[in-house]
Design a protein around this nucleic acid. Structure first.
Lengths: 197, 197
DNA sequence: CAACTCCTTGATTGAGCGTTCAACCAAGAA
DNA sequence: TTCTTGGTTGAACGCTCAATCAAGGAGTTG
């Protein structure tokens, strides 16, 4: 494994656990057993490590996130809730300290470099595009006039907001309630599609 | 104005603009025109400044946030969307760099002191309690079995998620779509209440 | 062998951080 | 006048941070 790969892997974990600003270069070095010179040979600056991390998330969303979450699910709408269940297990496994790595960065970095901001946006974009595909696959189960992109972004909204509150209150029930509300919304939409058909 | 008040006011603005970690004591001193000794006479540590800020938000939510947003609104459900409109103007006024001060802190602080975490939770709690009151005032316009606390938390979820995405994409439309989805959800709920009655 | 290219080593740099404290000041009490 | 109290001053401290760089392999090529 190259030094570059080692650093990105370590940084993915440390940025997620401690945040970007609170992760020092020294943290990355001790985790990877590298020396500072090697790190600065692979990356010009700490911010470029962040860019590497965001690119890794962007390029790995299907393999690392969606494929595991959708292993046993075919129904397009159930895929959405399977993904949310996946986040739920992460919340539980981390004793409600889980934070979406992208969402946390989005709020932690107050004056981000344009490249960083665009990569965060690209990550959100990939996520909602995957949901939007599910909504497209749901076909006529949703009302014809449904804005599927907006609804996909709303799913992300519910996930991020639910994660934030579960983490703050240290209780997964806050996430569960957000999912339940979203479930109710989908139930109403499916009902409206049936009646309207 | 006491030194303590000066510091809290300056910190509210700076933590909101730059985040907690990126705001240095020196920043606070130059903004308030105080010396470090005065600050440390008023607060034992930087974290206690943060606590002061969170207490100020907690105690000022009605006067500073809700009263202005609800100045011309009586209808309980419209009050919810009036509050969201208030956030929208903040987003627009800041060229889509607005972040909810509480939400940003919630995600920036990865290992918060229990007292800090509880204050963030209390702030969310006050916010959702105000929404819950609106939902209670809406009475039978919502289906009888509606879990009004969960729905209030869902409104917070939509706000935080919408703000996060608008900020990331630098476009208020992402916030607007989140609000529109929430509006659609309320419309469906009101319709269900009417039919079921 | 030498020359060249990658990559690594790790002590070092200088800036910035939160925090401290002896000295100082103004105003009221004795 | 002298003492006390509550607050202010600002230089200094110890530390951590991201980043640097001269020196030194290791491998390949001619």
């Amino acid at each position: 494994m190259s030094a570059r790969e080692k650093i990105v892997l370590a940084a993915m974990e440390l940025f997620w656990l401690k945040g970007y600003n609170s992760t020092s270069i020294a943290d990355l070095l001790s985790r990877t057993q590298l020396n500072s010179g090697s790190l600065y040979h692979a990356f010009p600056s700490k911010q470029d490590v962040l860019i590497g991390v965001l690119e890794a998330y962007r390029d790995g969303i299907h393999q690392q996130l969606l494929a595991p979450a959708w292993a046993d699910v075919d129904d397009p709408i159930e895929k959405i809730f399977a993904l949310l269940r996946h986040y739920r297990t992460l919340i539980v496994e981390t004793d409600c300290t889980y934070g979406c790595p992208i969402g946390s960065l989005a709020l932690e970095l107050h004056e981000p470099d344009p490249k960083v901001r665009e990569l965060i946006a690209a990550n959100f974009g990939n996520w909602t595009a995957a949901i939007e595909q599910c909504l497209a696959d749901a076909g006529k189960r949703l009302p014809g006039e449904t804005d599927r992109r907006a609804l996909a972004q709303f799913v992300l909204t519910a996930m991020e907001g639910g994660v934030m509150q579960a983490r703050t209150h240290r209780h997964v029930a806050y996430f569960d309630r957000a999912v339940a509300q979203l479930r109710a919304h989908f139930a109403l939409l499916e009902q409206a599609a049936k009646v309207g058909a």
